[in-house]
Design a protein around this nucleic acid. Structure first.
Lengths: 342, 342
DNA sequence: ATATTTTTTGCATACGAATGCAAATACTTA
DNA sequence: TAAGTATTTGCATTCGTATGCAAAAAATAT
């Protein structure tokens, strides 16, 4: 198989112009006469020429590649975000280089190092944090870093999240208003800012109303752990009459345990609330009340921050929090009197 | 923000050697004395030097980037595959550049053109086909193309799929053996080879046993369409007593319609079978009988083909079909007498 | 010790495209 | 028509790294 690469030089020859001219034709805003533009264009299509992005980036210092680190593709929120993200960047002429963070080790730093090797124009960390040391490295390399769906106290990083504190509060208000007495919480991974904020917002609002958590278990944002947590939580004689689960993904697992292992009715005996509003939450089999994370708006903000920071390297990091509504569905009861059923 | 890039030249200066020496230290298998290797290494870490992959690829002609085109991240099979794929390639020092195929147009060709701009070492098309013309372009560029979960009659392309024909047959056998009389099918997108093969395998086996399709609708591998299809299919007086849905993703939507809109019992009144065995299929709420597509083995084959073709550009395209088992769960009845319930 | 082989090193160049600069051409204006 | 201005063009260089080649150094054999 003979591989012949067509370079700008060959196009130049065929078109009877210099290599510079060819380059200018493919560089938006460069000075070229219409006549030569046409000559070059036709020669280029005849040969099937397309500029080599890698060679170009060597000069310009821009690769049009955005590095993306993802950990939890099994949580449907992330594929959705990835799809939106990739589409949005694609429209702007950028593309996403994917790096999976193995769930085991905290090897994010190594991964980010690898990313930097590709001379990316920006880095998005989805649901993942990085060491302060690495943040410096990225800053030094002039690469803007955005944490997506996670925050971290480092003013060199931009962050885009939903308003988890507020969201947690909304859930508490809603459950209390629904007449629930024994309100429980199943936590996500405790190293995650989303977990912390959701719980803080939830518990603070409970306190505000003179209430406190009836039970608490940890699900680590992992379905298996969430199942365990649910089993543990619902084996006492007085089970909770409402449980807020830190993510939809875990909430589905919890609902399955409640219904199919313990034989309890949702919402008659237990109300369940999730967080994220992934598509499955609206499926009738779950019909889960949940706080929506507006993935599209979060992505839009992320993209605009990234692009801005590429155009102007002196852009200051930003911290965006997007409010999301509580979506009320059938996994929770609303009336006070229903509580007498227990 | 002052951005200083550390190049091999600066490392060379600090280490008191030539730039070539530095390069050789970072090129596996190159000839360097241990002593200089150490000098360079320490200088490199001191400066935080890492080779610029893009510059390197300009010379070597290898970018260590694999282009991946995905269309249906909303079907859980693909995020799973993406995760496995990315992880496997990562281990081999490659990374995945993602391109979303917008579901609307058949603009795959444009996308592949963009991919080629990045000088990728290989291309994986997940659930997507390409024009014969483009296949030539890729061949000319020396870029090996693999269709993942799709086939196409073009001997320049490698393909990796499950054995959809066999899988469809297994479903037919199973449903007949279960005593079902009115067996229906909800098709995927009719342009897809997976759809064609699954249906052919299914229908052929029915014929083999002297049976034929009782009803057929098209769901296009889209949940909304599948819902419509289900509504249409189950509004006759004599509804099917079994339906094979061409993908799990659609099957969930179909089950929801059957249960929550039509109030029918699964499997007592209708058996439902899917295809893919995505994780949700095993959730108790669906407990879906389905044909497993062994994502891990499909990915392993894909990766090995890609890597082989990179090492040896003369590798011939391969066509792999992987057999997957029928996973029997609760969405189907097995006993013959149960059929009398209808 | 010298001759010979092997290993290591630096020099110079190449990869493909972008760009500052100056020369050449085209266009205005008087 | 000549002088002046604006637009195009090509030359030469640059980005950061890899590599063929020949020179230098080290290791081995005689």
């Amino acid at each position: 198989m003979i591989t012949k690469k067509i370079t700008s030089l060959e196009v130049a020859k065929l078109a009877g112009v210099s290599q510079s001219a060819v380059s200018r034709v493919f560089t938006p805003g460069a000075s070229v006469a219409n006549k030569t533009k046409e000559k070059v264009r036709s020669a280029a299509t005849k040969l099937g020429y397309r500029p080599n992005i890698l060679a170009r980036s060597l000069i310009t210092g821009k690769s049009r590649i955005i590095g993306l680190v993802v950990a939890h593709l099994d949580n449907y929120f992330y594929p959705e975000a990835l799809e939106l993200l990739s589409n949005a960047l694609q429209k702007k002429g950028y593309h996403v280089l994917v790096f999976m963070a193995t769930k085991t080790a905290g090897n994010i730093d190594d991964i980010v190092d690898e990313i930097l090797d590709y001379q990316v124009d920006g880095i998005i960390l989805a649901s993942v944090a990085m060491s302060s040391n690495l943040a410096s490295r990225c800053a030094a390399a002039g690469v803007h870093v955005i944490l997506f769906n996670r925050t971290q106290d480092d003013n060199r990083l931009s962050t885009v999240t939903s308003d988890n504190l507020l969201g947690g509060g909304k859930v508490a208000k809603f459950l209390i208003a629904g007449g629930h007495k024994r309100i429980a919480y199943i936590a996500g991974w405790e190293g995650a800012s989303t977990q912390r904020d959701r719980e803080d917002g939830f518990v603070d609002e409970l306190k505000q109303q003179g209430r406190s958590l009836y039970a608490r278990e940890v699900g680590n944002y992992i379905q298996d752990d969430a199942r365990q947590a649910a089993r543990k939580m619902f084996t006492n004689d007085e089970i909770p009459d409402a449980v807020f689960v830190a993510s939809d993904d875990m909430a589905f697992a919890v609902m399955d345990v409640i219904r199919y292992e313990l034989g309890l009715k949702i919402p008659e005996q237990v109300s369940v609330v999730g967080y994220d509003d992934v598509p499955i939450a609206s499926w009738p089999a779950y019909d889960l009340t949940t706080v929506r994370q507006p993935a599209n708006r979060m992505v839009a903000e992320t993209v605009s921050i990234i692009l801005e920071s590429i155009e102007d390297p002196d852009t200051k990091p930003r911290r965006i929090q997007i409010d999301g509504p509580l979506i009320m569905r059938g996994s929770t009861r609303i009336s006070n009197n229903a509580s007498m059923e227990n």
